[in-house]
Amino acid sequence: MTDTYDLAVVGSGIIGLAHALAAARLGLRVVVIDRDRQANGASIRNFGLVVVTGQEPGSSRRLAERSRKIWLELANEAGLEILHRGKLIAAQRPEALAVLESFKAGEHGAECKILTARETVGQLGSLNGKAIVGGLFSPFELRVESREVLPRLASFLAGRFGVAFRTGISVNEIAPPMVETSAGRLRAQKVVVCPGDDFSSLYPQRLRELDVQRCKLQMLRLAYPGFRLSSALMSDLSLLRYGGFASLPEAVALRAKLGEQREAALANGVHLIVVQSADGSLVVGDSHHYGLSLDPFGSEAVDQLILDEFRTLFGKAPEVIERWTGSYASAKNAVLRDTPHKDVRLVIVTSGTGASTGFGLGEETIVELLSQ
């Protein structure tokens, strides 16, 4: 007898789980299928940082605001631990402070606070005060431990909503209501495909037409530094990575200044995010290199560019205790949502913001798909 579901989700990363959650909350019978036994891709190779402030105005900002609310709901319902809240952007250059002041004066800056150099260091006493000219504090950001949260979220979906998980099997063909897998056939009225950076298994021709490529990043875990972060930390380079800052007129001067002073960092897509885990260790990164096929090797020179930025803010860096690379899909638009069949949606976050926007995206996709 063929198993029958209202919705099949292909992919058990954060985007797949977000769609499964949205459908399960509406009472649908859901199955999640993944060729791996657990999420091992971009969904766990990241900061676990839910970023709201700095998201590009419009859809990205709206999805991030909604996703943050869902993360807070899940913290209560599923016992997902929020390790710290908020984000401190420590400005090292007057040009960066000008960007932050411009953001504060704009549509989404009302609940953020501009800080003097003394106030910025006061937020995190271990900062090198000589390197700081001011800052901005955002109250919105949330930090979770991705490698722990995703398995817990999957268990919650299975236990609370009866979501079925079929792992270690691949999907070979989708022809609703039939889904052919390496373990046999199942029936699903609707299908959402969340392939991450797998461009060859399903709908490869459509993905080629949509001009999707990969982004490789490098990240580090540093030993406990002897202090505790009360929030995530970013620096000047980060302002060029987020559309809500980078699109401001003041960002032009910042980019020029960083081009003079941090040319190698810009060339390697380096910016600094620092978050802290429950054991006190720091997750630090990252870099960005783009292409259709990228090697899996990390560069010590790139790691040192990341650590140089850390040392500028803190004076020294603790021992590196873990290194890894990640890969995610990248495209011009922040989200790719395609319709290869009237009952199928192909959904990829192509901006590295899956944790920040995925839950809101899942809700929107499921509502739209069910309206067909």
Rank of each mutant, 00 (worst) to 15 (best):
A329G: 11
L217A: 06
D338L: 07
A91R: 05
Y203E: 11
A105D: 15
V283Q: 07
I306Q: 12
E73K: 08
H341Y: 12
Q92R: 13
R66L: 09
E364G: 12
A265P: 06
S287M: 04
I14T: 07
S59V: 11
R152E: 11
L294H: 13
L150V: 01
R147M: 08
Q55N: 14
V284I: 11
S138C: 03
M219K: 11
V121T: 04
L202W: 01
P340F: 08
I132M: 01
R228M: 06
V133E: 01
R241E: 12
E180Y: 14
I44R: 11
E81C: 09
G280M: 04
G243P: 07
T339V: 10
S287K: 01
D308N: 13
G244S: 05
L207Q: 11
W324R: 03
R147E: 15
W71E: 00
V171W: 00
V32S: 01
L136T: 03
L21Y: 12
G360A: 04
E263A: 15
F103C: 06
Q55L: 10
L124Y: 06
R143W: 06
F165P: 09
G244N: 05
T167W: 03
K104L: 08
I306M: 10
T4N: 13
L292D: 09
V52E: 15
E368A: 15
V212P: 08
I82Q: 09
T312H: 13
Y203R: 07
G129L: 00
R255K: 15
A24N: 01
I348C: 06
R25W: 02
G291Y: 08
D6K: 03
F199T: 02
L127H: 02
G285L: 06
S231C: 13
P177V: 00
E322M: 06
S12E: 14
E209L: 07
A91Q: 04
I15E: 09
R262H: 14
S67P: 09
S277P: 00
V171D: 00
G162A: 00
S170M: 07
I14P: 08
E319C: 08
Q38G: 10
V335P: 03
E173T: 04
L370V: 07
Q261I: 05
A18S: 15
T312V: 14
L63M: 15
G315M: 10
F310P: 11
G48N: 11
V99F: 04
C215V: 13
W324H: 06
P176W: 00
H271C: 09
L361M: 12
S43T: 13
L17K: 11
S182C: 02
A331P: 00
S330Y: 10
K113L: 15
C215H: 03
K216V: 07
E319W: 09
M178A: 04
S146Y: 03
F161G: 01
H108S: 13
R221H: 04
V9Y: 02
E250Q: 15
A22R: 00
I70L: 09
V163G: 05
G280T: 03
V283S: 10
R147Y: 10
N128D: 14
S330H: 05
C194I: 01
E260C: 09
V99E: 03
T4F: 04
L7Y: 04
